[in-house]
């Protein structure tokens, strides 16, 4: 009988990432039986001991998992799932989760709901809510097969607090069927505060007119110790790197303060920033969608508003 919730844990530099804690929190709140975790990778055993709130931590530690490939990770995750026999599997909507979840679902003869933002148990089964149509709609899904698999949008769930480490169990896997290989990897370099972790994000859109329009955005970000974000239009035009893109196909941020400058506020952009505690919009079009999500706004041209705002904030800050 399938039972309990199995979550995919992820580690970065030996530490358990935030979304993993959010998954364990969500899994506990479901009340759908024991919570277990799986950690896949190479040299990850020490990190496994840092996972709290799961009764059991399955570890697949193998050199073939040093770099993520769909083939290797699907086989490893399937080996764990077959052993754990969960009723529900949860992963983050992360680089790994996005790619792995559908392949695992197929291997286990079931289906997956991607990028969910709410999870609920009803009539003994998992029901998920997810944004669809670029965030314009919400879809509620159920599952007719087990295990029910869902990926969960980062920052949509409260993380688990405390709890003790689970019993670690090693699971073997066979790497012989791996067909793809990663031959090179170039990491984006970013200075200053990491966008996903920043408490203040100043984001710029196509209305800035060119890369030089970002000079004042950067200045404001520096002044508020924040990170710079961008719309996809801007990333596509090459004005800013993809690593700064906020939205459905970019990063999800939830800072205390999100300032959107010359961004129209398309639903796909809002998908990445609607969890922000306070949105400030600066846009010359009073009807722009961004004002519908904003707490404060200025209708005006960024070219005059931004320099004035930098000066005004300096002044107000100096007043103490």
């Amino acid at each position: 009988m399938p039972n309990g919730v199995l979550i995919l844990a992820e580690a970065e530099g030996g530490e358990i990432v935030t979304v993993t804690k959010e998954l364990i929190g969500a899994a506990q709140r479901l009340g759908a039986g024991p919570v277990s975790a799986m950690l896949l990778g190479s040299g990850v055993e020490a990190a496994a001991g840092k996972i709290t709130g799961a009764e059991k931590v399955y570890v697949v530690d193998d050199p073939a998992l040093a770099q993520y490939t769909n083939d290797a990770y699907t086989q490893a995750a399937a080996a764990v799932a077959q052993k754990a026999d969960p009723a529900i599997v949860l992963m983050g909507q992360t680089n790994i989760g996005r790619d792995l979840a559908p392949a695992l679902a197929f291997k286990l003869g079931t289906a997956v709901a991607m990028d969910t933002i709410a999870l609920e148990m009803k009539d003994g089964g998992l029901h998920t809510t997810r944004p669809a149509y670029g965030g314009n709609a919400r879809a509620v899904n159920g599952f007719s097969t087990t295990p029910a698999i869902a990926t969960v949008r980062p920052k949509s769930q409260d993380p688990v607090e405390g709890g003790s480490a689970g019993a670690v169990e090693k699971v073997a896997f066979d790497a012989s069927g791996v067909r793809t290989k990663v031959t090179a990897r170039t990491a984006a370099t970013s200075e200053g505060v990491r966008l996903e972790d920043a408490d203040v994000v100043i984001a710029g859109g196509r209305g800035l007119g060119g890369p030089e329009g970002f000079a004042k955005v950067e200045e404001l970000a520096k002044l508020l110790n924040g990170a710079v974000g961008a719309s996809r239009a801007v990333a596509d035009l090459g004005w800013r790197p993809v690593s700064e893109q906020v939205g459905l196909t970019g990063k999800v941020v939830s800072p205390t303060l999100y300032v959107a400058v010359a961004i129209s506020g398309a639903s796909q952009h809002m998908a990445g920033c609607s969890g922000s505690k306070n949105i400030v919009a600066i846009n010359k079009d009073a009807d722009a969608n961004i004002f519908k999500a904003a707490r404060f706004g200025i209708v005006g041209d960024f070219a005059t508003v931004l320099p004035a705002l930098v000066e005004a904030i300096k002044k107000v800050k100096a007043e103490g």
Binding site: A111, H127, A132, R138, A139, V140, N141, T145
Partner: peptide, 10 residues
């Protein structure tokens, strides 16, 4: 379908 659509709303 294995994934069933139960509701769609704005």
């Amino acid at each position: 379908p294995k994934l069933t659509l139960e509701a769609l709303y704005v």
